[in-house]
Design a protein around this nucleic acid. Structure first.
Length: 272
DNA sequence: AAATCTGGCAACCGCTGTGTT
DNA sequence: GAACACAGCGGTTGCCAGATT
């Protein structure tokens, strides 16, 4: 099922990921964000290339990634969108929250392509008509349902995260600041010299290798996090974060979900 | 029971687009 | 505008598990 682990000439590990590697990557990204995929493995204590880390995170470790068990509705959406968009797997994945482009692509090649060949009439691109409206209606319903499910999950995460956040704030300053960076740093310029003196290295409990870093380690995590403030566009969000009620990481995902939902709705004819 | 075939999926590779210098 | 670095995308491959012979 998976490639056997091996090392390339640069000493980079390839092939299947071990649970230990998964834990390191997950812990690092959740804590510090993916501010630079190329540099990330070094700081996370992984002997992997950045691309490999990104892929593993996006397709497997990322929160809310759904695996297997495609519903009929989801398959219909994939078929419909494939008719419209072709092999734009990332674009198709955007319409199916929780599904990754890689997984959709695999599912297409292993299941839906056959299905489509067997039922060619279902794959026709229909003109704007009553039929289209009907299928768009179903699509809309599914999008709403999916969005509501995602939003519920996010709320649960928010509540859990808020408690954890509040607790960790009491015990450790660094945990508060690091969690905020999970989202904010992701959108930052990769020139991390902006943050000279930052301890980007994962905590030692995430790292088993003896690799050390010579960059001076400063007190970044106890200082105001400038970049992240630009991310919150309303006072409510900011106050929640400032108040320690929720982490900006959670807020980012909620924002993403809203954006995705809004974008999806905009593309339906009756909502244009 | 052993050998072979096939399906499914994780992961790699190479290309492209975008941003920065 | 050229050169470079990086992230992201889509095609493809490698390998395992289960099915079939």
């Amino acid at each position: 099922m998976v490639r056997t682990p091996c090392y390339d000439k640069n000493g980079m590990k390839k092939g299947a990921w071990s649970p230990e590697e998964d834990n390191k990557l997950k812990a690092y990204v959740e804590r510090y964000g993916h501010w630079n995929w190329r540099q990330l493995p070094k700081f996370a204590g992984l002997s992997r290339c950045g691309k490999s880390c990104r892929l593993r995170w996006m397709n497997y470790l990322r929160p809310n990634v759904k695996r297997g068990n495609y519903s009929k509705e989801e398959e219909d959406i994939i078929i419909k969108l494939h008719d419209q968009l072709g092999n734009k797997w990332s674009a198709i994945a955007e319409k199916l929250p929780g599904r990754t482009d890689n997984e959709i692509k695999n599912h297409w090649h292993t299941q839906l392509k056959k299905h489509k060949n067997q039922n060619p009439e279902t794959s026709e691109v229909k003109e704007q008509s009553d039929e289209t409206s009907q299928s768009d209606g179903k699509l809309k319903e599914l999008l709403i349902e999916t969005f509501q499910r995602e939003a519920t999950q996010e709320r649960e995460l928010t509540l859990e995260g808020g408690v954890v956040e509040a607790q960790s704030q009491q015990t450790s300053e660094s945990s508060q600041l690091s969690s905020e960076s999970s989202c904010g740093l992701s959108s930052l310029n990769s020139d991390y010299s902006l943050f000279s003196g930052i301890n980007w290295v994962a905590d030692q409990d995430f790292i088993t290798s003896s690799e050390s870093f010579e960059e001076p380690i400063g007190n970044f995590w106890t200082e105001p996090f400038i970049a992240d403030t630009s991310y919150h566009q309303n006072e409510f969000s900011s106050s929640l974060v400032d108040g320690g009620l929720i982490s900006s990481y959670v807020l980012c995902h909620i924002d993403d979900a809203f954006d995705l939902f809004y974008q999806s709705m905009q593309e339906l004819p009756q909502y244009r």
